[in-house]
């Protein structure tokens, strides 16, 4: 997955930054997370952690998450968040 242009991050980079944030900031030490793990099951993250993750997404990738975008399809796992960030930042760089 190569970057589409010089200013916005490639999908792989988005994914790595998301996984790093979740591991370091949201999970207990030793707990692992994969790109396909369900983040909204209530088992891995609680509602506060999910809110922190959403805030991170907006700040880290410099775009505003519209209320209409707070849906399961955009936040279920790291893979779909990556797709969402990629779509949301398209043309913003």
């Amino acid at each position: 997955m190569a970057p589409d242009d010089g200013s916005r991050p490639a999908c792989r980079e988005i994914e790595e930054r998301l996984l790093e944030f979740i591991r370091l900031e949201l999970l207990s030490p030793g707990v692992t997370v994969d790109r396909q793990d369900d983040l909204l099951s209530g088992e891995l993250l609680d509602s506060v952690a999910v809110l922190r993750l959403a805030a991170f997404v907006g700040e880290e990738f410099a775009f505003e998450i519209r209320p209409a975008d707070f849906v399961i399809e955009n936040f279920q796992n790291v893979a779909v968040i990556t797709d969402y960030v990629h779509r949301a930042t398209r043309g913003s760089g």
Partner: peptide, 13 residues
């Protein structure tokens, strides 16, 4: 479900 409760757009739907 927890997923719907965490995502207000999905909850209202």
């Amino acid at each position: 479900t927890p997923a719907a409760l965490m995502m207000p757009g999905s909850l209202s739907a």
